[in-house]
Each structure stands twice: as structure tokens, then as C-alpha cells.
């Protein structure tokens, strides 16, 4: 097995005063990638077109790869010896910090595609900003991940435009999907109370700046897709960062964690 790079004692991410907030923030990012990666993997072998099946599996793989890096770093920051696998497979729903948007069921391709676009349009500017973090460890993972996420956004954005500005049926389904997901979308840009000190220290991006870019991408894409931005607030459904989840997360974890729960320590 490959050894991890040496932890860097000079990295401000590891300062004791940031430990709890940084662990929580990293779990937010890592769990978001993990849970969305798992949701996308549910399409494997049954997406409506072969190309989409392959694309969804590829995006899932990238996201699960990111989750592994973020959660491994979270475990290092926490300093209790927990690995990425421990955090992914042995925490209960209350300990997960992902936004609610990513745990919602896939439903049809309209919901899957629209959810992916809402997430990607936030993910890319967030990683761009994070790649300038005062923490070299955070910055290098973000710089790696954002190259992959650029492809995710290109794909989901193209699909939203093609389906939104497509047939009457595809347009209607995309608009319905947008309205269904809208109340959950704003949580992506909601900071948790502990984040302020991390932003202050230059470790993580200010979500207000990320949100501005996110809104710009949304407006421009929805306009091109001939879809209407819903009028209601985008942040009424939230609580993921506090561990308050929808009923869907428990079912997802039951499947994702089954093997490690039933056969603790099992390896390939």
C-alpha cells in the first residue's frame, strides 16, 4: 500500500484551535461527494442510454475518489486514528454532514441531471476558491479535483440546456425537476456557525463569494435552457451540516455500509 504524504506540521489546518471546525467542514465536503457518488452509482447498468450510463459511473468514481481524499484528511485533522473508510462506513446518519440535496432519491433522469447541475455549478467555483487555501493540503486536493469537476459541469450544463430547450416533454420534466430540487439547492452555499474562524484564517472560501458565481452560472444556464428560475427561496430545506437529514439518508447508508457493518473489517 502507498504511504500517505507526510503530514505537514506547518499547515495551519492542523492548528489545535481549528481542529473541531476543520473536521466538521471536511466531513461536509467529503460526505457531499460520497453520498452523491453513491447516488450516481445507483444508475450503473440501468441508465436510459449507454453513454449516460458510462458518464454517470465516471462522475461517481471521481466523486468517490474526492471523498476518499477529503475524509482521509478529516481523519488526520481529527487525530483519533480514523481512516476514510472508518468515516464512510462506520458513522451513523446523525454524524453525516452532507447537504440534503445529494441524499434525495434519483427519481428520473431529469431530477438526476438537474441535481447534478446544481451541485456541479457550486462545486467548481468552490474548488477554484479552495485551491487558494492557506492550507497546502486543502489546496492540493482542490487543485486536483477541480480539473475533474470542470468536466462534470460541462456535461451537466450541456444536458440541462439540451433537455430544457428540447421537446415539450423534456422541457416540462426539467422544469418540474428544478422546482422539486430548488428548496434544497441553497443549502450548498450555507456556512455552518463554526466556519467563520476557518474563513478568517484563509483556510476555506467565503461562501458568499462562491454563491455569487453559482448564481451567475445558474442564471445564464437556465436562460439558455429556457427554464424558469423558481420564485421561492432556495434555502428552506437544510440541516445537513447539523446532522439533521431526510429519511432517505438512512436507507442509503443501510445499503452502502452493509458489508462493513455485517462483516467488520472485511477486505477484498
Amino acid at each position: 500500500m502507498a504511504g500517505a504524504a507526510d503530514p505537514r506540521p506547518g499547515d495551519p489546518l492542523f492548528a489545535p484551535e481549528h481542529r473541531d471546525a476543520a473536521f466538521d467542514w471536511l466531513c461536509g465536503l467529503g460526505d457531499g461527494a460520497l453520498i452523491l457518488g453513491h447516488r450516481l452509482s445507483e444508475w450503473c447498468g440501468k441508465a436510459p442510454a449507454l453513454e449516460e450510463d458510462i458518464a454517470l459511473a465516471n462522475v461517481a468514481l471521481d466523486l468517490i475518489g474526492h471523498a476518499e481524499m477529503w475524509l482521509a484528511l478529516a481523519g488526520e485533522v481529527e487525530g483519533q486514528g480514523r481512516s476514510a473508510d472508518d468515516l464512510a462506513y462506520l458513522r451513523d446518519a446523525l454524524r453525516f454532514r452532507n447537504p440534503l440535496l445529494v441524499e434525495l432519491p434519483n427519481r428520473d433522469m431529469a431530477v438526476t441531471t438537474m441535481r447534478q447541475f446544481l451541485f456541479d455549478a457550486w462545486h467548481l467555483p468552490m474548488l477554484h476558491a479552495l485551491s487558494e487555501s492557506a492550507s497546502p493540503r486543502l489546496a492540493e486536493i482542490a487543485a486536483k479535483a477541480r480539473k475533474e469537476v470542470a468536466y462534470h459541469l460541462e456535461r451537466s450544463q450541456d444536458l440541462v440546456i439540451r433537455l430544457g430547450d428540447g421537446t415539450e416533454e423534456s422541457h416540462a420534466r426539467m422544469q418540474t425537476a428544478l422546482e422539486r430540487l430548488w428548496p434544497y439547492a441553497g443549502e450548498l452555499c450555507q456556512p455552518a456557525p463554526g466556519d467563520a474562524a476557518l474563513v478568517e484564517a484563509g483556510l476555506v472560501p467565503d461562501m458568499a463569494a462562491v454563491s455569487a458565481t453559482w448564481q451567475e452560472i445558474l442564471d445564464e444556464t437556465l436562460r439558455e435552457a429556457t427554464l424558469e428560475r423558481p420564485e421561492g427561496r432556495a434555502d428552506v430545506q437544510n440541516g445537513g451540516r447539523k446532522g439533521r437529514h431526510s429519511e432517505h439518508l438512512g436507507f442509503l447508508l443501510a445499503e452502502m455500509q452493509f458489508l462493513q457493518r455485517a462483516y467488520p473489517g472485511a477486505e477484498w
Binding site: A2, G3, A4, A5, M69, P136, A139, E140, I141, A143, K144, K147
Partner: peptide
């Protein structure tokens, strides 16, 4: 032998 993963600079 030790094989280490190095992330930075990212692969291109």
C-alpha cells in the same frame, strides 16, 4: 521500497 502518492502538481 516505499511507494508514495504525490498530489501536487496535479497530473496533466
Amino acid at each position: 521500497l516505499r511507494v508514495e502518492r504525490q498530489l501536487s502538481p496535479p497530473w496533466t
